[in-house]
């Protein structure tokens, strides 16, 4: 169910891709010609949640790890949750950004850099076009999805989904 919702978000994001896609450098591992541009749709924010500073700018920063009671109660963190918490990825001083382990701030459009800190081999494959879905042209402009379009960053594991109907077995001749 959640995956279905996510797929919807991804689809909606894809539709919106026209009004402001980010561009991913085609990757270090490859020697792709310039025409092989790769585009990503905007990050899949829940409606109305971005920019985060709308609310957070006026709030004091509370760095203590705690259970969230008032806001973001829908987030059930299952992503190495024993070691990590919101501010390990979200930037406390500018809420509209994420940050890397180095402290370097990155926009949500480049969240793959953050994911790639731990999942380096996935990032490498994603850049080469091997991990994740690509749409568009095999010999021209392609669209990638960001990691977060398919994997909920707070619960990245894929959820099972219902298969489409099985083929009909061939009919036996009647005698």
């Amino acid at each position: 169910m959640r995956l279905a919702a996510f797929t919807l978000i991804a689809a909606a994001a894809l539709l919106r891709a026209a009004d402001g896609p980010g561009t991913v450098p085609a990757g270090s591992a490859s020697n792709k010609p310039d025409q092989e541009r790769v585009e990503t749709p905007p990050p899949p924010f829940t409606d109305g949640i971005f920019p985060c500073s709308n609310c957070h700018a006026t709030q004091p920063v509370n760095r203590t790890r705690r259970e969230l009671k008032d806001m973001h109660t829908d987030i059930d963190l299952r992503h190495d949750e024993t070691h990590r918490w919101c501010l390990d990825c979200h930037d406390a001083t500018n809420r509209d950004f994420l940050h890397l382990a180095s402290g370097e701030r990155i926009p949500f459009e480049e969240s793959y850099l953050l994911c790639g800190q731990c999942h380096g081999e996935k990032l490498r494959d994603w850049r080469a076009g091997v991990h994740g879905r690509r749409t568009g042209n095999w010999n021209g402009t392609k669209s990638y999805l960001l990691c977060a379009h398919c994997h909920n960053p707070h619960q990245p594991r894929f959820h099972a989904l219902a298969p489409k109907p099985a083929p009909r077995p061939p009919a036996r001749p009647s005698r």
Binding site: L3, K32, H131, W138
Partner: peptide, 17 residues
């Protein structure tokens, strides 16, 4: 393909996926 399992391209292009 929802999981991106399928890949397609030009075998003669050394930069293809």
């Amino acid at each position: 393909c929802p999981v991106g399992a399928r890949k397609f391209g030009n075998l003669l292009d050394a930069g293809s996926e």
